[in-house]
Design a protein around this nucleic acid. Structure first.
Lengths: 335, 335
DNA sequence: AGCCTCTTCCAAAACGTTTCGGATGACATT
DNA sequence: AATGTCATCCGAAACGTTTTGGAAGAGGCT
């Protein structure tokens, strides 16, 4: 049964009545509604989504735009995020589509094509940057969007984020509590807000404690962590603890540590962030931090739907606590 | 400029002519076509996709259904696959949507909802199983689909896959060539075709060489590899080499090896498969195998489009070679 | 009886595109 | 001058839904 017309014909009703019965209007007699629902059930009627979309002016699609650096798209985070967001949207009859857009001059073109072609009702922006032209553009044209992560953008916008600032502040204090006096931070590129916040939390802890606290920035990959740790350990007085912006960087740092004959968890403490699966199986197991990624995905979906419904983004800002996960790389308290 | 009607009015032409000019039909004067194209360009006209979809009966959407085990969805593979597939589809004006479906009794419901609601023109099935009800269902109803990975399914279907059988056969011979005489295979659940093929390749190499070759199966995760390796190493005569179905399993196995005071790459050789980023930074660096995932994604997209166009799946089967990546965990030749 | 209110139903329009089946002239051919 | 052939163009239908603005009838009230 592929159309409302056939269904109506079969039941001896008008298209209008069948449509309204299925949508649950109060407008149709209870007996009739039940007859319609039963018939729709047995014939397996499914409304044609293109027709519904055309008529209602909605696509019933939410789009997530993924940063598409060809080499390192593989943050394990994102796939779990996609799953949870997609599942929540599906509950509401929405589909999740995915496009890749490289940061750069052509980035906004992708957004424009998406919006002007009316291919989506809302956009989920991930990997936000401190200065983010995407938020500016979407806000200016009044298109519904939700961000995963924050930005320096001044106008109100909906977002979900982990409290990386507090998490790195606490982690740094945890290290000083263990007796560390020279702590290094391997930072991710500070153009990204998440990297900036984690660095700020670390810096605040250093100010609180009056310790020096050194920072080296590199890309948020194993290779980046390896390079940054290499530089840091080559100093005359290398740090006794490395607080890394991501687990990937921390795994890279571990290799640099090993190559210098040091033992992580004994000679030097290492902490990461993300709790990727490999982190629990590194040598030694990597102490890390985790934010509730599935819940984040669900909230992003719910916010996107609310924005489509016209809700005010002012009320949609959410900063979630990050859980610390101690493991062997944290080491023991030092003399 | 949001509709063909407005554009036509502005140009003093009929909707028909404008539409045909934009679609490049031969039955419109060159001068007219150029006038139309110029106007469309300056006004930024974009056809309404819902209307076009309704009229043409196509959604211009391809859907990838991801296996949604909540815990371990995070194969780094998939995100790169999504990126490359999505990019290729976008070149053709197609969108890639994503849904998650758990294997199990309700799995086919997700497919049915998708197809009967006409929400997609083709489906990409990933993580194929030897007995895969999805291929049966899609073939029976004649819906266009493409599989990443093979299945025991008898009827012709389009797929792209890596040659895991040959890769594991070669890897096993490589180990015997290094002098190993007791080789263990940590297999992934053999219901999955990829796991079955890798196991078969290993088994064939053992037959070829007349060596015993032991196999233990567990889940394709770090934890699974850890467990399986633990069992294998607890034997009276443990193997001197472990060939693991995936890098995740290999990283888990490395931990089991360490806990027994053995050193991977010296006391025992370890090989994985996938070349995940963490593999290059484990201790020791993990020897592994890699298949061209971006190319695979592109081919999946192209095949999906061809199937939508009505092409015969018989001509669309592709098995790509897997590249071996030697690293320290492979060890030296033994006495 | 006349008037109102309620319940239940429906015809028709609209969303914006593609496409079928001509219509209109211009020009060449007989 | 009549006919045929092209090159251009267009009107109208169709895709399947949602929604507006009633219509028809039943029953209650004065």
């Amino acid at each position: 049964m592929s159309s409302l017309r056939e269904l109506a014909q079969m039941l001896g009703l008008s298209i209008t009545t069948v449509s309204r019965a299925l949508d649950g209007y109060g407008d149709v007699a209870v007996a009739t509604r039940e007859r319609v629902l039963a018939a729709a059930e047995t014939t397996g009627y499914r409304p044609n989504s293109a027709a519904r979309r055309l008529r209602r002016g909605l696509t019933e699609i939410v789009t997530m735009v993924l940063p598409a650096e060809p080499g390192h798209f593989n943050e394990p985070l994102y796939i779990e995020l996609l799953r949870s967001t997609g599942e929540r949207l599906a509950q509401q009859g929405y589909d999740l589509t995915l496009i890749a857009a490289l940061p750069g001059p052509d980035e906004l073109k992708t957004y424009r094509r998406l919006i002007e072609g009316r291919r989506t009702d809302a956009i989920i922006v991930v990997r936000t940057r401190r200065e983010d032209a995407r938020l500016r553009y979407l806000t200016d044209i009044g298109f519904p969007f939700v961000a995963m992560g924050r930005s320096d953008f001044a106008e109100p916008y909906a977002y979900v984020d982990g409290d990386g600032e507090a998490a790195f502040h606490d982690a740094a204090l945890r290290l000083t509590g263990l007796g560390h006096r020279r702590i290094g931070h391997l930072a991710a590129p500070s153009a990204f807000t998440f990297a900036h916040l984690r660095r700020s939390g670390f810096a605040r802890a250093m100010r609180d404690t009056g310790l020096p606290g050194e920072i080296i920035e590199d890309s948020a990959t194993e290779a980046g962590g390896y390079r940054a740790a290499g530089v840091m350990l080559a100093q005359a007085q290398p740090p006794s603890a490395l607080l890394c912006a991501t687990d990937s960087m921390a795994l890279g740092a571990m290799r640099a540590v090993r190559e210098r004959g040091l033992v992580a968890g004994r000679d030097i403490a290492i902490i990461g962030h993300d709790n990727i699966p490999a982190a629990a199986f590194s040598d030694p197991a990597l102490a890390t931090m985790e934010l509730p990624i599935a819940a984040t995905g669900r909230r992003l979906a719910e916010m996107a739907l609310a924005r489509i419904g016209g809700a005010d983004p002012r009320d949609m800002t959410e900063i979630n606590p990050v859980e610390f996960i101690p493991r062997a790389s944290l080491g023991e308290a030092r003399g």
